[in-house]
Design a protein around this nucleic acid. Structure first.
Lengths: 222, 222
DNA sequence: TCGTGTGAAGCGCTTCACAGCA
DNA sequence: TGCTGTGAAGCGCTTCACACGA
């Protein structure tokens, strides 16, 4: 009603654009490491594995971030993408399930640079509670709700066995968490306002297996 | 040229259908565990988190697998989907990078039931070579090409740091591997006939973070 | 009757092509 | 001149609605 050049560039990004923003951000951080200050849509597209038109269309949804005749300022764009992703300040995450996979993520040093900080680990198994993994003491799942408030936890990585996943998920949802990354190969039931992303490694391998078939068989039917 | 009811149900599935087949398969295996013999499209859709129309359209691409008025025979469908994915016999996979994440997958018992068997682990670090993880001795990456032939390896899980990923990838591709699941947060350059799937946990968390923003802010612009 | 298989409609994403601006 | 931002065209996926068949 008052702004002129500022269109409705605030909410409602296409789902596919949202999925690519982390990819663009990663490529831009790489470019920063190479001391590049400007990237055009073609260059960014090549790094991200897409094309220039896709990059321009995606970024145009965020506002007019580029300079015609020049390209995109790398530092500027990094800030804009981080702001859109809500990671200008690190988001705090918790791991539920201190098994092999959960421990691997606890020890991974790469999350902080991507705007996520793992601040706590929980397990339902009393044998796991109290042990220290990568400098963090595993807490009981019973303490989860309290920890969410105390530590500002907003994201959950669910790394429990499939049979325990729904139970753990219920605890997480009851504590007010709205975003879950589920590594268990099962469908989780959650309220509409909770977002679940599925990370099923076996499914990924099956998809790759499918593509192996397509490549090898020349064209015979049997 | 001779078959009557058999249309061209052999190759060329829509990409999105291929992505959902592992999901359907997982739901069907669950149903088998519950001693269910028949599922209709609505029931399968609910389990898979989609709808009946989507299920029917997807499965129709594989042939006429259902029975009108009844639904789909669970065992039959499992066999069909596994055949399409090329996992009627287990596919053999190798892990490159015997770090925390690679070790976690080596110890995961759930792959075999999904048609994938991890048969070897490799690392470029001489300090890692020779150590035993979950009953498997870590080999040098230099032995990879030979092992591919000896052990029938067709899939690779790449769990090395980002800086080492392209180098490791080149070794894998040179050994004739056509399918790679890359856990390193970087874009890999591969020939056209090699399929790479990206598994970037930090990117998934960033997407979840974006959705947190959308949910919390009621509608104000600033 | 009930549920599949399927053409057709609907919808969203991708690509194109070019106007607009530094 | 060179590259962005963007309407429009193109394309593929999803959803609908119903004929067909057990």
């Amino acid at each position: 009603m008052s702004s002129v050049t500022n269109g409705n560039h605030e909410r409602d990004l296409p789902a596919m654009t949202v999925q690519r923003i982390p990819l663009y951000l990663r490529c831009l951080l790489e470019a920063q490491g190479e001391r590049l200050t400007v990237l055009n849509s073609k260059q960014l597209g090549e790094r991200a594995g897409t094309n220039a038109a896709q990059v321009r269309k995606d970024l145009s949804h965020l506002g007019e971030l580029g300079t015609r005749g020049i390209g995109y300022d790398v530092d500027d764009l990094v800030v804009h993408l981080m702001r859109r992703l809500g990671i200008t300040e690190s988001r705090f995450a918790a791991i539920i399930g201190a098994g092999r996979l959960g421990s691997a993520f606890l020890g991974y040093q790469g999350f902080v640079a991507r705007g996520v900080q793992i601040v706590a680990a929980f397990d339902a198994d009393p044998a796991k509670v109290g042990i220290e993994i990568e400098g963090l003491t595993v807490k009981s799942i019973d303490e989860f709700a309290q920890a969410v408030g105390n530590e500002g936890i907003e994201l959950v990585l669910l790394t429990v066995p499939a049979v325990a996943a729904q139970r753990a998920c219920d605890v997480v949802v009851a504590a007010g968490i709205k975003a879950i990354l589920n590594f268990a190969p099962c469908t989780l039931s959650v309220p509409d306002d909770v977002t679940v992303r599925q990370a099923d490694v076996a499914a990924d391998l099956q998809i790759l297996s499918f593509h192996l078939n397509r490549a090898s068989s020349g064209g015979e039917t049997r």
